[in-house]
Design a protein around this nucleic acid. Structure first.
Lengths: 234, 234
DNA sequence: TACCAGAGTTTCACATTGGAAACATCGTGT
DNA sequence: ACACGATGTTTCCAATGTGAAACTCTGGTA
């Protein structure tokens, strides 16, 4: 049942990323050492994959180089596969062609699904629901979310703010761990372009979650076993 | 000139994130140990911030828990500030209100700019340029990018693929490290909704880069100092 | 050629992390 | 109260990461 333990896989090389970035800017090891507070000897070892830097060091690197951790270790994925060489991916979606999922309240259309491990999950959502009850309350998941209204208007409900109306051309950005829900205002369905920061390692899992947990999962962040979300095998 | 070295700041707690996630699923330390291949004693220490896990361990954690590194370490930012408690941010942009930047070829409108350190940078781009020469060749930067055509049509030029026409409602996802450019087809300007994965730690830097490097920077990934992009102070 | 300076690597002593096993803590049942 | 199992913490030692300094390598210069 537990997934296999992965001990010494060919881990995505953080050293390679560092070297590339350093070279790009024309920095020397001493430059980076000054910026990050990490000794140049250590930096050299990191670049040559002689050591696996600690979390502490990684943070210093990110801070000093002015980049987000995701960019330094891009290429890592949830399977531990080596993706370090995916620097030329591209996917095009025409019109509303995509992976479609629908129920009474929503139609989800996922775009560019041929690309795995995206940092941004783009989708179109057609909203028909008009009340919180219909959709089963507020939703939450890890990550951040951006919504842009393409057609119609919605009421954006969130856990910590008063409901807001978003009309065509309006948009909102929020933390997805905060409960949230999209509701159509009036009879006409609304069309949204929604982006989720890649909280889910793969789309299959996303779909499964949306399909199966729709009615079971609500805004809750329990920490005891009884309240916890069931651990579905993927 | 080099930014100050940050040694022992209150680092964003990876332990806290781990504990929260574990509790959410109702997993025990032993469960997580089985999933990740990390011993429960080590996991305990990580959760209690007694040790700073190595890159290797962090990867194992992400792989075992099925999450992206950015979600485990969310809260880290490029300044080393402690952002671990920002779980309820929200920003709304109405219409085309936003931070606007324009030149002859493009008008950039950044949305929700009051939120810092976004994982997704949402912007609207109005494209007037019709040729690669006008825009100064292909562009590249770290991260990933998603473009959705709101109005008009564009030709998406990339380093590794043949140019593609995207009309209203079409979209594309690609790796931003690959050179790319948006060109309007015909006389009418095109309006795009573009998302960049948060490659830049803050918007100020983004703006500065776009403004000042527009004409100097091209598709190049040199590693010798001569060709490298100038190291602008931020 | 010799010399020098700058960049990167390696050495070595020390500090920190990782894991097996012992230990502590808690709730439950008898 | 006691035993028991399950969960999480601590101990101890081996394995690994870190930094100062020594070292190598390269290119420029006299």
């Amino acid at each position: 049942m537990p997934t296999e333990a992965l001990s010494n896989l060919s881990t995505p090389s953080i050293g390679e990323a560092l070297r590339e970035r350093r070279g790009y800017h024309g920095w020397t090891l001493s430059d980076v050492a000054a910026k990050t507070g990490i000794s140049k000897s250590t930096l050299s070892k990191i670049e040559n994959d002689l050591i696996s830097p600690s979390y502490q060091s990684i943070l210093q690197l990110c801070a000093g180089l002015g980049i987000e951790i995701g960019d330094l270790v891009s290429g890592s994925n949830s399977k531990g596969e080596d993706l370090r060489r995916l620097t030329g991916r591209r996917s095009v979606s025409h019109g509303e062609a995509g992976l479609v999922m629908a129920d009474d309240n929503f139609t989800y259309t996922y775009f560019c699904t041929d690309i795995a491990h995206k940092r941004i999950i783009p989708m179109m959502i057609e909203v028909r629901a008009n009340s919180l009850n219909e959709v089963g309350g507020l939703w939450n998941h890890v990550g951040e979310e951006y919504v842009y209204v393409l057609e119609g208007a919605i009421e954006l409900q969130t856990e910590l703010y008063e409901p807001t109306i978003l009309s065509k051309g309006d948009s909102a950005y929020f933390d997805s761990t905060m409960g949230h829900a999209y509701l159509a205002t009036g009879d006409q369905p609304a069309k949204l372009l929604v982006m989720c920061s890649s909280a889910t390692p793969n789309l299959a899992q996303t779909l499964r979650e949306v399909l199966s947990e729709r009615l079971g999962k609500r805004v809750k962040k329990g920490s005891n076993k009884k309240d916890a979300v069931a651990d579905k095998e993927i």
